[in-house]
Amino acid sequence: MLKMNNIKKVFRTEVVETHALRDFSLNVDEGEFVAVTGPSGSGKTTFLNIAGLLETFTGGEYFLDGVDVKGLNDNQRSKLRNEKIGFIFQSFNLIPDLNLFDNVDVPLRYRAMNAKERKERIENALETVGLANRMKHIPSQLSGGQQQRVAIARALAGSPRFLLADEPTGNLDSEMAESVMSLLEDINQKGTTIIMVTHDPKLALRTPRSIAVKDGLVSEVVRKEAVSEANENVAAFA
């Protein structure tokens, strides 16, 4: 599904060169839920941005669903993002001037889809995250956890194969973080591949696989034996 070989990413400014990723390699299979951990500045977000086609890379190769990403132009990348990838951001990134319905509608509008189908999808997505009764509210009228659930609804509405989440619980208290996490687990259960960057070791333990990034490299891959076992571990932690 996602295949990265020796990805390099160098940020060049006038004064410094930052090697954000150095020989970053990773395979993620269809249906996996992978947690990504690592210290600040280790390259987690950079990896996610490249995986989500938000950024180009300096070297190496990346296949998304068998497609060599390197050869794509800006419009093709936009189209792939729109159709295959759902994004969840640490600070939610909802559009403050639009109500929940219109927020979830944003990615659908960039697809040739008729109004009826969009409406159905939006309502289903908001239903899934439990906010169907708030469609006319604007983001500032919601709590952080609710806002993140709207963002998840927005990511889900286009039925992506892939969900990329950069610290989705980073701005939430533990209770809200829990509700978001279990929502993601449900989504994964239904077949969506998820890659989630997190600073929270408890959450990282809950996923079947977690990788640790350090200095732009995958330093450690933890593959738990079975999901149920991992869940027990979490139970033990809690």
């Binding site: 993002r81 994004f87 403050p96």
Partner: peptide, 16 residues
């Protein structure tokens, strides 16, 4: 700016 970046991330082309 952030909103534009987000729209781009969600699939907006430059033309959009």
């Amino acid at each position: 700016k952030k909103q534009i970046g987000t729209r781009r991330a969600l699939g907006a082309r430059k033309l959009d």
